[in-house]
C-alpha cells in the first residue's frame, strides 16, 4: 500500500509538472516552430487569457466557458499583434524579439495602470481528494487531462484538417504554397493567433490557482522557454517529449531537495541538451528520419 501511495504521489507530481510545462509551452512552440518568431510577449498572452477568463467568471459565466473565452480573446489579440507588429518583420527574425519584448512591457505596465496591481481570483473549484495520508487538489488532475487533450486536439488540427495541411505547406515552402493559391498571409495570421490563443488557454486554466497580477505571465516564461529549447521546433516530436522528460526531472528533484533543486535541474537539463542536441529533441529525430 505504501509503495502504491508513493508511486501515485510521484505520478501526480509528474503529471502536475508535465501539465504546466505543456500548457505554458505549446503556444510558444507553435509560434516558434511554425513561424520562427520568438515571442517574448508570450507571458502577456497568458495574462490576457487569465484576466479575461476571471472577469468572465465574475460576470457570471461558468468556468469552462470562461476559459474558452480567455483563449479566444488572447487569440484575437494575437492576430491583431501579428497584423500590426509582426507582419512587417518576417524577414527580420531578431527584430521580432525586440518588438515582442516591447509589447510585453507595454502590456504589463498598461494593465497595472488601467486595472490596478491585482485582480480578485475566483478560487480553485472541485475541492480535494485524499489518498494514503496526502490530500490532492482535484482541479490539478483536470489540468493534466487538459494538457493531454490540448496536445491531441493540436495533432488532429495539424494532420486532419485543411488548415493543418495549408499551414504545414506554408511553413515548409512559403513561395510554392503561395504559387499554389494559398493565402499565406492569412495562414501566418491564424497560426500566430492559434499560438496566442494557446497561451490564453494556459492562462485561463491556471487563473483559478494563481495570484492575478499584471506580471503573472513572467512565472510561466522560464518553464515555457526551457521546454521549447529542449524540445526544438516541432510541437509533437519536441514539446510533448521534452515536457515529459523535464517533468520527471522537476518532480523528482523538487520532491527530493525542494523547489530550488527542481529549478536548477531544469536549467542544467537545458544546458546539457543545447550542448549535445543543439536543435532539440525534435531536431534530432527529424534529422535521423531524413
Amino acid at each position: 500500500m505504501d509503495i502504491f501511495n508513493l508511486i501515485f504521489s510521484f505520478l501526480y507530481q509528474f503529471g502536475d509538472a508535465f501539465a504546466f510545462l505543456v500548457l505554458s509551452a505549446c503556444g510558444l512552440a507553435v509560434i516558434f516552430g511554425m513561424m520562427g518568431v520568438i515571442n517574448l510577449a508570450h507571458g502577456e498572452f497568458i495574462m490576457c487569457g487569465a484576466y479575461v477568463s476571471t472577469s468572465a467568471v465574475h460576470a457570471g459565466l461558468p468556468l469552462p466557458l470562461a476559459i474558452v473565452a480567455g483563449a479566444v480573446a488572447a487569440g484575437i489579440a494575437g492576430m491583431i499583434v501579428e497584423l500590426l507588429v509582426i507582419r512587417p518583420l518576417y524577414q527580420r527574425p531578431l527584430d521580432t524579439i525586440v518588438a515582442t519584448w516591447g509589447i510585453s512591457m507595454i502590456v504589463t505596465q498598461g494593465t497595472l495602470i488601467v486595472l490596478g496591481p491585482s485582480m480578485q481570483g475566483v478560487g480553485t473549484p472541485f475541492g480535494s481528494f485524499t489518498m494514503g495520508g496526502y490530500s490532492y487538489s482535484v482541479y490539478r488532475v483536470i489540468l493534466m487531462i487538459a494538457a493531454i487533450g490540448t496536445l491531441a486536439l493540436l495533432w488532429l488540427m495539424f494532420t486532419r484538417t485543411r488548415f493543418g495541411l495549408l499551414s504545414r505547406a506554408t511553413i515548409q515552402v512559403p513561395h510554392v504554397a503561395e504559387a499554389m493559391g494559398v493565402n499565406t498571409n492569412l495562414i501566418y495570421s491564424v497560426t500566430f493567433g492559434l499560438g496566442a490563443g494557446l497561451a490564453g488557454l494556459a492562462g485561463g486554466l491556471y487563473a483559478p490557482t494563481m495570484t492575478l497580477v499584471p506580471t503573472m505571465g513572467a512565472s510561466f516564461m522560464v518553464e515555457a522557454f526551457v521546454t521549447v529549447v529542449v524540445g526544438g521546433a516541432d510541437i509533437f516530436l519536441g514539446t510533448a517529449p521534452a515536457a515529459a522528460i523535464l517533468g520527471v526531472i522537476k518532480a523528482a528533484l523538487t520532491g527530493w531537495q525542494g523547489q530550488l533543486a527542481g529549478q536548477i535541474g531544469l536549467l542544467i537539463a537545458v544546458i546539457i541538451v543545447i550542448r549535445i542536441l543543439p536543435r532539440g529533441i525534435s531536431g534530432k529525430i527529424l534529422k535521423e528520419r531524413a
Binding site: 509538472a17 496526502y134 512565472s219 518532480a251 523538487t254 520532491g255 523547489q259
Partner: peptide
Amino acid sequence: EEFIPLGVSQFSQTIQNIQA
C-alpha cells in the same frame, strides 16, 4: 524547511512535502 526561488508559482510538490 524549504526555500523557494523568487518568481516560482507552482507549489504542488511543496504542499506534499509539508504533508509528509
